[in-house]
């Protein structure tokens, strides 16, 4: 049994009264320590799948199991709690909190978890050092480049020791070199700390690094490569 399992997962949206079948029966198991990329053309359902695994959305049919817990039927607060403790997010647009410094942004999820300030600071320093972003500690997002912001976002995603990190098009707003550096960093985290990463991307350099590649087409897994 993997850390994530989806069983007959379906998601249907209503677009001006017209049903749109974003996912049509996805069965998937993700094991601990995987570095998985979900690829596919626009509208294939990559982000929808990531949102369902990330407890941000609820399926129309089927189930999502996270560490054997069915999260499909959980209530808002429980889903929030789950995201806080078990899932780290890296977004395409970085999505750091603009009024907080890099250090405070990284610290934020630990503050929500109720971790004491001293311990928070210790862990933030540790992660920043590991990602080579100590110099950014006091900078606010508007004082950082896109690559720097995304590194801080990665630090925010992993600092709370999540079960898995979901990265939605993390390199889409970065140039090739910066994107490669970021992926190197995430690979290192995956290798050295056994952190599970699931990407949604159609960036070739992300796909190249996938140890497991799932290609979605019309809401279904069309192809799987390891």
């Amino acid at each position: 049994m993997g850390i994530v399992q989806t069983i007959d997962l379906e998601k249907t949206y209503q677009d001006n009264g017209v049903p749109v079948h974003a996912l049509r029966g996805i069965n998937l198991t993700i094991e601990k320590g995987e570095f998985t990329v979900i690829a596919g053309p626009s509208g294939s359902g990559k982000t929808t799948l990531l949102n369902l695994i990330g407890a941000l959305d609820k399926p129309t049919k089927g189930r999502v199991l996270l560490e054997d817990t069915d999260i499909s039927g959980l209530k808002r607060d429980a889903l929030g709690e789950l995201r806080l403790h078990k899932i780290g997010f890296v977004f395409q647009a970085y999505n750091l909190i603009p009024v907080l410094s890099a250090m405070e942004n990284i610290e934020f999820t630990m503050m929500l978890s109720g971790i004491a300030e001293k311990e928070r600071h210790r862990r933030v320093r540790e992660v920043m050092q590991e990602l080579g972003i100590e110099a950014l500690a006091g900078k606010r997002p508007n004082e950082m480049s896109g690559g720097q912001q995304q590194r801080v976002a990665v630090a925010r995603a992993i600092v709370n020791n999540p079960t898995l990190v979901l990265a939605d098009e993390p390199t889409a707003n970065l140039d090739t070199d910066t994107g490669a550096e970021l992926l190197n960093l995430m690979e290192t985290m995956n290798r050295e700390h056994n952190i599970t990463f699931i990407f949604s991307s159609h960036d070739p350099q992300v796909i190249e690094r996938a140890r497991r590649l799932l290609i979605l087409k019309d809401g279904m897994i069309a192809e799987e490569r390891s």
Binding site: D77, E81, R83, L84, F89, N95, I97, L112, S113, R156
Partner: peptide, 16 residues
């Protein structure tokens, strides 16, 4: 609104 979405995504509860 977008920022609140991010805050909720990273685990901030509605009450908070």
């Amino acid at each position: 609104i977008h920022e609140f979405g991010v805050l909720m995504a990273v685990g901030m509860k509605n009450r908070r």
